[in-house]
Design a protein around this nucleic acid. Structure first.
Lengths: 212, 212
DNA sequence: ATATAATGTGACTACAAAGTCATATGACTT
DNA sequence: AAGTCATATGACTTTGTAGTCACATTATAT
């Protein structure tokens, strides 16, 4: 957690610092990020930095939390309208909302991508203590509801399936950026639909008599 | 590529260096790995290092290639009879072999995990110019064959599906190690089977009349 | 035995990072 | 106006890194 001194700052200065941090953490993998560059960009002194934060990780965690909260809030608002949707429909809307978030807050997304692929396992565990479980929990709740409503195969392991959905979601983005150099983020939906198709029907040949 | 001077060394010295490198690259994320530590462990001088390799990345790439080759060779031997196996059976065998490899060569696996999770996109692209497609290609070929044999839904996007399988194969192992602190690697097969079930049938409720 | 080529060495340079601290500046209180 | 407390500063220290190079050692060929 940042120290009290940071929160004492007027919000304009706070934002200047956070913006500089977001830029830095979005531009480099964590281990290559530099406090020196951040303070330069934010136009504060080295000494001040250490009066606001304990160290780089302190700031990093805070920034990640902010971004994660922003996304949750954004998705949460969108989802209010979709309560009545069927599981796969809802999932689809969720991805659309995710893409919208990406469009509206590109800086946030850059840093988010970095975090999701971050390798440093120790750091990752520390950071993800919250945010990945968040997404997992969310999928779990959706799945549970869908099973109860008889929409989803009750045989599945819900925790594991939630995990699978989370990972697939990340993979989709990775795949998109590895195969498309474009900025046309909407095309991601192609892959979302492909993924949903597989999750729904599986890939073994044969028709499924989906019960309603 | 290492310089000729490296290959001129007797294999015992070569191994000493490669072993030190594997230990280092397995123990730290790439950006934190240190040539200094490697030469210390391998008991060679700084000057020698630069007579054998151009830089750290040079060595890194070489090590990754070695590990990747070893794994391919191992899998190839284990799966000699794979031609007559049905797609999902084969996939299962593949995981079993992969887990065996992990058991037999834990050092190799450590470094493999790091690589697969590596965040540095630029580096990743450079490294994977060859080796990632290897695993990807393999899945693609399997899928293609299975589609042709009528075992797999021809509707699916093979490239995309192969990618998802590749990524998830890694995730599943991570998931296991994150949720189970045990060394009983066989339990991973529980999750593999769950994954295969979903990939086969999907999660939507209803029976699938798999055509044979 | 001598000359030549290949290999080995570690002190050194150059650089960038995180973190510290004595001092300066400002703001608020008495 | 004087004194006190919070905040701001940047030069400095320490630590680590990659990479270089003049020289030492060893092996090979003549």
């Amino acid at each position: 957690m940042p120290k009290q001194t940071f929160f004492n700052l007027n919000s304009s200065k706070q934002n200047r610092i956070i913006d500089a941090a977001i830029a830095e953490f979005g531009a480099h993998p964590y281990l290559k990020t530099s406090i020196n560059r951040i303070i330069k960009k934010a136009d504060i002194s080295k000494g001040s930095f250490y009066q606001y934060f304990n160290n780089k990780k302190d700031l990093y965690k805070y920034v990640i939390d902010q971004v994660s909260d922003a996304k949750m809030k954004f998705l949460g608002e969108k989802l209010q309208n979709y309560q009545q949707l069927e599981f796969f429909e809802l999932l689809r809307e969720l991805f659309i909302a995710g893409i919208q978030f990406r469009k509206n807050f590109p800086r946030y997304s850059e840093i988010g991508d970095r975090v999701l692929n971050s390798s440093n396992k120790d750091l990752k565990n520390e950071l993800y203590a919250e945010s990945k479980p968040k997404s997992n929990d969310f999928f779990e709740k959706l799945l549970l509801k869908a099973v109860q409503e008889g929409k989803i195969d009750p045989e599945i392991d819900i925790k594991f399936t939630a995990f699978m959905l989370t990972e697939f979601s990340v993979s989709i983005v990775n795949y998109f950026f590895e195969t498309h150099d474009t900025d046309n983020v909407d095309e991601i939906m192609n892959y979302v639909d492909k993924m949903l198709y597989i999750m729904k029907n599986g890939i073994a040949k044969g028709d499924k008599n989906v019960t309603n």
